[in-house]
Design a protein around this nucleic acid. Structure first.
Lengths: 178, 178
DNA sequence: CTGTTCGTACAGTTTTTACTGTACAAACAA
DNA sequence: TTGTTTGTACAGTAAAAACTGTACGAACAG
């Protein structure tokens, strides 16, 4: 097959940089490489296919795919007559971008908000209490202001993600048609 | 100092979750904790202060601060009469959010675009060449379409980051005033 | 039911990353 | 100049993460 090596080389280059890029989504290079490889495969793949293609253990493929599923960057495909699970990449990268924020950022922020609210309750008590040392009270008040700012920021982030999720962002920053 | 423990406990809780959240920015928990600690310190701190406060080595403080500087999440402060370097957090979290994309995402995408363009050039040659096997040619053509889509997506991301950087995003998703 | 096949939990290993202590260069003080 | 102080490079160590192989439960085939 004349030209096969050049084809593979061209793919490999893209896959490698894509994989490093995907660190931004919190996945390792090797998971990124798996994604990239799947990206260039037009047919859905089984874990054994991937294992074969990347020369890694099936266990690794299993956990890597799980990561990508969690991020909704790959999806399971059903095909009658085939017992093995099949996977393919989510083709819509805009969707993947949005999903990332929806999954990772929203989750992180929710946890953070809980912690902040709990601490604010405690600090309010501290400020209200007569037993509290004056210096401590002053610090607590300052902290309360900081935490309120933090809450405001998280509120903004949530609305920002809403803006992505609803697709409103595309009114401001339109998709490039081609 | 009555109430000091409660104050510290309230802070610690927030710092810990904040630190984990900062994994989203690609920094470790311990760097996140340093950031959180700095966040609650109203006065700028020296490396030795941090080392003392966190019970870690000065070397660690040095490299951690460097990471945070790179992300523009902390900044150096000059104070006359003090020889040691002083650092404080960037208070504007909206700015930090924008900076993160500007620094990390733009960089990654730029690298990726270069790789894609190079591969597209090669693939175009491959498609044009008469020596190329027909099957390979077909795959190369399919790849070219995929890569063009990728370029379109990266173009969108760049415009998206422009939208953050210019502050236009705040017209759509306004800051919460309080 | 018994045989396979498939995906994954788990334990163990390898690799990578985070962290420390030392040593040293640069900047300053005297 | 010489003596300090400060930040960081570097090498070594400790901790964490990635990866592998085995073993096993679940799903299906016959």
């Amino acid at each position: 097959m004349n030209g096969k090596e050049q084809l593979d080389q061209a793919r490999e280059r893209v896959i490698e940089t894509m994989a490093q890029n995907m660190n931004l989504y919190g996945v390792t290079d090797s998971i990124g490489r798996l994604y990239g490889m799947l990206y260039f495969h037009d047919e859905p793949m089984t874990l054994d296919d991937m294992k074969e293609e990347l020369g890694m253990s099936k266990t690794s493929m299993s956990t890597s795919v799980r990561h990508l599923l969690e991020l909704k960057m790959v999806e399971k495909v059903w095909k009658k007559g085939i017992r093995k699970d099949l996977y393919k990449v989510e083709e819509d990268w805009y969707q993947s971008f949005t999903d990332y924020f929806n999954i990772k950022w929203r989750y992180g922020i929710a946890r953070n908000i809980l912690a902040i609210e709990k601490s604010m309750t405690e600090l309010n008590k501290l400020v209200a209490s007569e037993d509290t040392d004056e210096e401590v009270r002053a610090e607590a008040k300052a902290d309360l202001m900081k935490l309120q700012n933090a809450l405001n920021y998280y509120d903004w982030i949530e609305r920002f993600i809403d803006c992505l999720e609803s697709g409103k962002i595309f009114e401001i920053v339109p998709r490039k048609e081609h």
